[in-house]
Amino acid sequence: MIKTFVLACLLLSGLITRAQYPGYTSLPHYETFQKAFAQATTATESIQADFTQEKALSMLSENLNSTGKFWYRKKDKLRMEYMRPYAYIMILNAGKIFIKEGQKENTVSANSNKVFQQVNRILIDCVAGSMLDNRDFQPAVFESSASFLVELKPLAKNLRELYKNINIVIDKKDYTVHTIEMFELSGDKTVIRFQNKIINAQIPDSVFNIP
């Protein structure tokens, strides 16, 4: 009897503590979503978009806003070019990370820093649609009339030390990523929103070139 009660409490607390999002309902069996999402992302060879990024520092009541351009090409090529507040370029290509900040250029192996590698994998997974397969996270899927919300709870210890969860909002109409929200343990969050998305545009190799 006690065992049953404890089990019921645990199940109930699990249901209650699972984050709820206004306008969204939980999708406990998300195989249909997963299948449709996989189909859509299989057909996505490239994405080009503008982005806005908002870092909210909760305790300081401050927001840091950035804007830039984003390019992704299957399978692991990514370029984020910040225009504002200052020029900054990050390119991921074949396991290497290239960073240009002002006159400074720096190329490092993604493998040399595990956390950096994991954070970059999150970005690639989010846009490539493979986040449900990433074993570093426990996913949960929610649905609204216009979009899906994939909540990723970190399982890996080093990611749990950094993020409470990462949410990805996906447009229902084309299954592309609309927003990535990264919630830190401190209460701070970073929100990246993609606009003017062009799917399967021809993106030249030079965009991802690492000198």
Partner: peptide, 8 residues
């Protein structure tokens, strides 16, 4: 630049 906090 990507919003990843180093320290507070």
């Amino acid at each position: 630049e990507m919003g990843f906090s180093f320290f507070d």
